[in-house]
Design a protein around this nucleic acid. Structure first.
Lengths: 210, 210
DNA sequence: CCTTGACAGTAACAAAAGTTACACTTCAAC
DNA sequence: GTTGAAGTGTAACTTTTGTTACTGTCAAGG
C-alpha cells in the first residue's frame, strides 16, 4: 500500500502524514459496477482514491437517477467528509465506474489530522472546491443546455474518465444517468452518428470527433 | 459589533475566537440589491452573516441568471472559502436580498484559525455541508421537477427568507432567477391564483396557502 | 437450429416550455 | 391631462422533450 500511497499523494502530503495514513488506513478494492455507498447510509470512513473511478449519483422520488460527477485518482468524497463529521446520512449513491482501489480512513483521524497537518487541511479544502465546481458544472448542464448538448458533454466526460474512446454503455444506461428516456437518447445518438461524430454499435459507442 | 457577534455566534465559537474575530473583522452593511461579489472577482475576505440575506446566482453564456441558494444569518459563503484558499476567481455572483450586516474576515486568518480552533473547523465544515446540501436541492429542483413545481418552491423559499408572505417581485425578476421567460412565469402564477393559492398584484404576490 | 430476452430504430403523438405578438393597466414625469 | 415606460394578461405558435407502440436485430442457452 505504501508504494501506491506515495505514488499518488507524496507531492501533497508530508511524510509523517503518509506514514499515519499507511498505519490506520485499510486498502479496499472494488469491481466495476459495485456499490460503495447507498442513499441513507451512515458513512464511517473516508475514501482516498488510488486507482479507477467512482460515479456519484442522485436519486429522484421515483427511484430514477442523475449522474452528478466522477471521482478520480487522488480525489476524495466531499460528501463523505461532511457526512462523517455531521453524523448525517448520505445524500448520494456511489458506484464504481471502473475497477477501483481506495484507502479507507477512519473518521476520527479526519478531525485529528485537520488540526495537525496543514497539507491535510489544504487537501480537504481543495477537495471541497473541486466538488463544488463540479456541482456547478452539473447545474450548468441541466439548467442551461439542451439534451443534445448534455449528451455530448456526457460522452466527452465518459471518454476522459475511462480514457477510452469506445464507450461500452447501452442507450438505457445513458438515459438513466442523464435522467431522460431511452428513446430520447437513441434519437439524439442517431443524429450524432449521421453527423459523423460517433459510430453506433450494439452495447458500444465509438467516439470519432466531438 | 461585539454584541452582534456574541448574539449570533457565541453558541458556536469559543470566547477566544470571538475576541479574535472582533479584533480583525470589519463590519460591513449592504443595502438590498447591492452586489457583493461578481463572477470573476478575486475574493480577499470572508463574510460572516449577522443579519439579512444574500442570494447566490450562477450565470449562463448569454448573461442570464439562475438562483442557486440564499445565505442567511449565521451562514458563511463556502465558495468564498475555497476561492480564498485556492486563489481562484469567483464562480458565482452574490447580491443582497435584504439589507444585510456582515463581518469581513481577512483570508489569512482563515487558515490560521482552522489549525487553532476546533470550533472554527466545525463551523467551516458545517458550512460546506449546508452549501453542498443546498446545491443538491437546487439540482433536484431543476432536474426532477417541472416549472410549476419549481415556481412553488421558489415562492415558499422566498417567503421563508424574507419572513414575509407578501413577495415584492415582478414576474420578470422571478423569471430571471428561475432561468425561464416572463410569459411562462405569468402563465403559471395565474394558474396558482385561480387555484386560490396566491393573490396577484402589480409588483407583488401575496401567498395565501402553498 | 430455435427461442428468448435485451437492445436499438423509428413513427406518431402528447406534454412542457419557450417565443412572438399585441392589448391593456398603472404610475411617475413632464 | 398627456406621455411613455414598466408591468401584466393572453393567444397562437414552435421547439424540445417525453411517451407509447411496434419493428427488427443480435447473442446466449437450450
Amino acid at each position: 500500500m505504501l508504494t501506491d500511497l506515495k505514488e499518488n499523494f507524496t507531492h501533497i502530503f508530508e511524510d509523517a502524514l503518509i506514514a499515519e495514513i499507511n498505519e490506520v488506513g485499510t486498502l479496499k478494492e472494488v469491481k466495476e459496477g459495485e456499490k460503495l455507498i447507498e442513499i441513507g447510509d451512515y458513512v464511517r470512513s473516508m475514501p482516498l482514491l488510488l486507482k479507477g473511478a467512482i460515479k456519484i449519483l442522485r436519486e429522484d422520488d421515483d427511484g430514477d437517477e442523475l449522474l452528478l460527477y466522477f471521482l478520480e485518482r487522488g480525489d476524495t468524497c466531499a460528501m463523505t467528509l461532511t457526512c462523517c463529521l455531521g453524523q448525517t446520512k448520505s445524500e448520494i449513491r456511489a458506484i464504481a465506474e471502473l475497477d477501483t482501489t481506495l484507502i479507507m480512513i477512519p473518521i476520527q483521524k479526519m478531525e485529528e489530522w485537520t488540526g495537525k497537518y496543514k497539507s491535510w487541511r489544504n487537501f480537504v479544502f481543495q477537495s471541497y472546491h473541486a466538488r463544488l465546481t463540479e456541482m456547478l458544472e452539473t447545474i450548468d448542464s441541466i439548467a442551461f443546455y439542451n439534451m443534445d448538448e448534455r449528451l455530448v458533454k456526457y460522452l466527452q466526460n465518459k471518454k476522459k474518465v475511462t480514457n477510452d474512446s469506445l464507450i461500452n454503455s447501452t442507450h438505457q444506461e445513458i438515459a438513466y444517468e442523464l435522467h431522460t428516456s431511452r428513446v430520447v437518447v437513441s434519437r439524439l445518438l442517431k443524429k450524432l452518428e449521421s453527423m459523423g461524430k460517433i459510430e453506433l454499435n450494439r452495447n458500444s459507442i465509438k467516439i470519432i470527433a466531438l
